[in-house]
């Protein structure tokens, strides 16, 4: 109760860890999925019947 926060690195590490983890994880998933996605120009010829949404 002296007006400043002592310690607290745990919260900092948690916030940065979660933020980097989620952003990087999402980026990797998108990089993977969009690589296998057909290029937009000739996409119509690469249709996958019954592709899951």
């Amino acid at each position: 109760m002296n007006g400043t926060i002592e310690g607290g690195w745990g919260y900092v590490i948690a916030v940065y860890g979660i933020s980097w983890g989620v952003l990087l994880g999402y980026a990797v998933v998108l990089l993977f999925q969009s690589r296998s996605a057909p290029a937009q120009a000739d996409g119509t010829t690469h249709s996958q019947p019954g592709s899951t949404t």
């Binding site: 969009s34 937009q40 996409g43 249709s47 996958q48 019954g50 949404t53």
Partner: peptide, 9 residues
């Protein structure tokens, strides 16, 4: 790509 594929099939 999903939308294009969906339209094709």
């Amino acid at each position: 790509a999903r939308l294009v594929a969906e339209e094709a099939a």
